[in-house]
Each structure stands twice: as C-alpha cells, then as structure tokens.
Write a protein that binds this DNA or RNA. Structure first.
Lengths: 111, 111
DNA sequence: ATGGGCATTTACAGCATTTTCACACGGGGG
DNA sequence: CCCCCGTGTGAAAATGCTGTAAATGCCCAT
C-alpha cells in the first residue's frame, strides 16, 4: 500500500504527525517544522521500519527528477534530527544506512 | 533491469533476500551487508545451483568492464562467507569451482 | 525596495566502503 | 611427489558517502 493517506494521524513513539493539519507533536508539544521538513518526516514515518532510498524520498517529497548529486535529502534529514533531538533528547528516530538511505524507527530498541 | 526482478523475495534455506528493501535475513535475523555485498549475494542466489563465472558476476554486480586481474569478486565472496558463517555457522552457501567460478547452494546436501 | 524566513547549493572533514596489493596455500596435471 | 597457477586472506591505499555549517538564492509581506 502506498501508505495511507493524508487525512490520517501518524503515531510513532512520542511523536504524532497530522499531515492534514500540517502539524507534528512531540510529547504533545508542537514541533516548529517547515513544510519540507514536515513532508519528509511524514514520508519517513509512513515507511517506518524500512530503509528508504534518497531516490524514493526525493521523488515523494520533492516530486520526480532526482540527481545523484543532490544533497537536499541529507540536509533536511539533518534539520529534522536537530529539531527532534531538541524536542526529545536522547531518542534517535532517523537512522542512516550507508549506501542505501534512511530508516525511521519509533522504537529505541529496534536500532 | 537485470534479470529477474526487484520486487521479488528470494529464499534459500535459512536465507531470505529482499532486494527491494535492501535487506537480507538469516533465520530471521538481519544481516549487516554493504551495497556490493548485498548485490553479489543477490546475483548468486538468483543463479542458485549453477556455476557462475567471475566474469558474469562482475558484469552483473559492477557493470561491464572486467579485467582478468581484478580480484574484487574473490574479495567480496570472502566477505560474504565471513558474514554468512557468523550468522549461520557450519553451513556453506558459496562454493568454489576451481578455474571456473562460484556456485550458490542453499542445500547443505547438494555440495 | 527591504528584511525575514525558507529552500537549495556548496564546501569540507571524517569515516565506511571499495579496490588494490602481496603473499601463503593447495589442488591437479605432469 | 613437485611445480605451477588459481585462489583465499589480511591489510594498505584509494574512493566515495555522509554530517554539518555556511553561502546563496527565492519569495512574500511589509
């Protein structure tokens, strides 16, 4: 399934994402994310647990054309990590898989 | 796309390979492979049972040009054996055929 | 027009992966 | 039984990927 939907509410640990309202909450507190950041986080959370390639992420969040040299995904993953770390210190949601891409995991144990 | 399929799940004994997700499992436990390692394992598993020449393996995994002096395939077969041995001790999946190449066999009896 | 916020691009250091290399081993033909 | 050449292995060298910060460009509201 290409993930469910935009009217959905995504939960992942202490995180709650409401794509329809352009809102993400960390332990009930609202995260100050930009549109891109929110969309990237949503895309990752919708694919929770599996490794997602930059190519796929770029396609979904930015829309089609993707050049191997484009580092946008990396940069935005960095920004997300920063804001998530600030909101929920010590947890790590987004994992790097060298050569493959990124994986979102709500569960600290499944790392 | 090369040969069969990326959406496929390959099974071989206690091994399971999901090329689409960049994952290989040994008895359900996830193998920590790099891109090359995973691609080589996939190439071998897709040709399970037959002897595959270095030339063919190199062509499929690396892409064309192959020099007789290149030992990359050997080195990576070594790395795979090491990681497989660690995950599934005593089994032997990749067999050497002196002068010809390698053969992948999921079945311990068919050696 | 100007400033502010966001998106994108670039630069670079650090490190994981990949490739290359040297050497020891061993199977098979003579 | 020996020798030769193909092979396994470990490690060094080269390559390429990623995290981070900072520069640049873009758009909108004022």
């Amino acid at each position: 399934m290409e993930a469910v939907v935009n009217q959905e509410i995504l939960r992942a640990g202490d995180l709650e994402i409401r794509p329809a309202e352009f809102i993400a909450l960390a332990s009930g507190k609202r995260l100050q994310l930009t549109v891109r950041e929110l969309e990237l986080l949503t895309a990752l959370a919708e694919r929770s647990g599996r490794i997602v390639s930059r190519e796929e992420l770029y396609r979904v969040v930015w829309g089609e054309p993707y050049r191997r040299s484009d580092r946008s995904v990396d940069v935005y993953v960095g920004k997300l990590r920063q804001k998530l770390e600030e909101a929920l210190p010590g947890r790590r949601f987004i994992h790097t898989h060298f050569g493959f891409g990124y994986r979102f995991s709500p569960d600290p144990r499944a790392d």
